[in-house]
Amino acid sequence: MRDLPAGAGPLELEATPFVPQERYQCGPAALTTVLLASGADVALDDIVDRVYLPERKGSLQFELLAATRTEGRLPYPIDGTLAAIRAELEAGRPVLVMQNLSIALMPRWHYAVVVGIDPDRDRVVLRSGTERRHVTSVRTFLYTWRRSDYWGFVVLRPDAIPADVERTRYFNAIAALEQAGQLESAATAWRTALSVWPGDRIATFGLGNVHLAAGDYAEAEHVYRELLEQDQSMVVARNNLALALANQGKFGAALEEIERALNQAGDSDLAAELKDTEQTIRRMRGGD
């Protein structure tokens, strides 16, 4: 079930950089490899400082994802199948995977980068540890990968779309980039998403939010108004529209919008957040 469909020939991204790991530091080495492959300008030493925990002699999964975002790149988790790896390799992206090289009782966790697959000759090729070209059988690879619950991700440039894109997962990835404060990359990513799903409400909302967070209030107002024209019941957009207005000094209009949002939200969970926004705007205006 995790095998490749028959007939797929060999494929190897030979140009993938090789970053040999130093003692225990497979996480930084693997991450540097995929970041360099995505065109990011990084050095192993910097990545070590950001994702390596000396006391644990290792790196945590979420740290690898967070460090990817810090580079303005989008970490996208792949499905745990060889077909998913293959699809990303075909798009020119090596895949960072987590493995357990030992047995479950004595786990030896390891990060490596899949750069090639050759189903006919039963081979998976990895940049792994101090080996530039670690070749293993498909069966062995799947066995070691399974014990990490098939954990793996690719590093996307913000203008790239995952090979087998799953909308919610992709949008979550972009939203996380936005929250990490990588506003320029997040804006590019939302625009890229809009090229796949034109007029998508979440992606449009995301673009508005990036403008709002970046302090482009007039631009943010414009995007939220467009959204509300399509769907006037979109309370979250109205909340942020009110903030965009207040930040331009249009307090009257801002309070009007938030009142309307409060009416629309009724007693839903959003009501408390809207009231919070109302107070924020009143504070900004001064008085009350």
Binding site: A175, A180, L183, F205, L212, V236
Partner: peptide, 22 residues
């Protein structure tokens, strides 16, 4: 306050992030 790479970006208080809608 969101801290990015080498710059500090403060999003407006009470803003609802895109992740909420996702």
């Amino acid at each position: 306050t969101l801290i990015g790479m080498g710059f500090v970006q403060a999003a407006p208080a009470a803003m609802i992030n895109t992740g909420y809608l996702v």
